[in-house]
């Protein structure tokens, strides 16, 4: 059992949870994830490790409740525990000194971006971080990211925080400015956002790394359910990724495969108690 030591709400239905997992805390590197199996009869959910403290033996997870299982996880109170947490899984981010990099985060992807931005800054990069969301309440970790970035830019769809628009608009301006143009871009967020970022960086040929979160079970390469097409090759996101060259990823296929269980998910949602269901639907639109 993995004890929950902290559970904060960062944005509507977005939680930051600190969990006791000494072995994982010791082994973990930025870019890696865990599989959380909250209870005996639950699903196995892949979640990126946001941070880790090897001394304290803890890891930090950022979780957005988008369905029955993630709701179960975020509803675990401090002092409660998650039945299974396995990891760290996936390949760590290849951290190198690119000189100037842009880190682009959307929605919960911002949380996944955070350890990466920190590691890139530590490696000597000049980090420009661009984060976006629907509106101000959905902008998370702005302070933390500002602390490790040379510059933090925010875009919201309704203009309630930062500039109005999408992260891609901000990124385009950055690229167009020879003094601020990044040598590499790290984009993590909803699939359409990552695809849009890859399209912005493709013409100028800027190396772009994206982090994929397809449907997964074991996270060890055993089932192949998480396969994604990268260039001409089929890759398993759990062991070959989760980070890939954004210019080679077949985003259309990824989005399509993510819909494979839409019917079952809708049924699970329908079976939830009404007040919980409302909670999720309000956030998801």
């Amino acid at each position: 059992m993995f004890e929950v030591l902290q559970n904060d709400t960062l944005a509507p239905n977005v939680h930051r949870m600190v969990i006791r997992a000494p072995r994982i805390a010791k082994a973990r590197q930025p870019g890696q994830f865990v599989i959380v199996h909250p209870e005996a009869d639950g699903e196995r959910i892949p979640l990126t490790i946001g941070d880790a403290d090897p001394q304290a033996g803890t890891i930090t997870l950022f979780i957005q409740a988008v369905g029955a299982s993630t709701l179960k996880i975020v509803s675990t109170p401090v002092g409660g525990s998650l039945r299974d947490v396995a990891g760290p899984l996936g390949k760590p981010t290849e951290i190198e000194n690119w000189g100037r990099v842009a880190c682009v985060g959307g929605g919960l992807g911002t949380a996944v971006l955070y350890p990466l931005a920190k590691a890139l800054a530590k490696a000597g990069n000049e980090v420009t971080t661009i984060i976006g969301g629907r509106a101000k309440p959905y902008i998370i970790l702005a302070e933390e990211l500002a602390a490790c970035s040379t510059e933090l830019l925010i875009a919201t769809e309704d203009g309630s925080m930062g500039r109005q628009g999408f992260v891609t608009h901000v990124l385009q301006e950055l690229i167009d400015d020879p003094d601020r143009r990044p040598h590499a871009v790290f984009a993590i967020g909803p699939v359409p956002m990552m695809r849009a970022v890859a399209e912005v960086t493709r013409p100028p040929g800027i190396k772009t790394i994206v982090s994929l979160n397809p449907i997964m079970i074991d996270g060890t390469g055993m089932c192949g359910g998480c396969r994604v097409k990268v260039g001409e090759e089929t890759k398993f996101a759990c062991v070959d990724g989760p980070e890939f060259d954004g210019h080679l990823v077949d985003f259309g296929l990824l989005m399509d495969r993510l819909t494979m269980y839409r019917d079952s998910e809708a049924k699970l949602m329908a079976d939830l108690p009404e007040e919980l269901r409302d909670k999720i639907i309000k956030v998801k639109r």
């Binding site: 074991d218 390469g221 055993m222 089932c223 192949g224 097409k229 089929t234």
Partner: peptide, 21 residues
């Protein structure tokens, strides 16, 4: 525990599984 893929067209369609999965 690593499935051998068929390496044929259509392998990534929805409804295709490895036996392991």
């Amino acid at each position: 525990g690593l499935p051998v893929m068929l390496n044929i067209d259509g392998e990534n369609l929805k409804g295709v599984y490895s036996a392991n999965e």
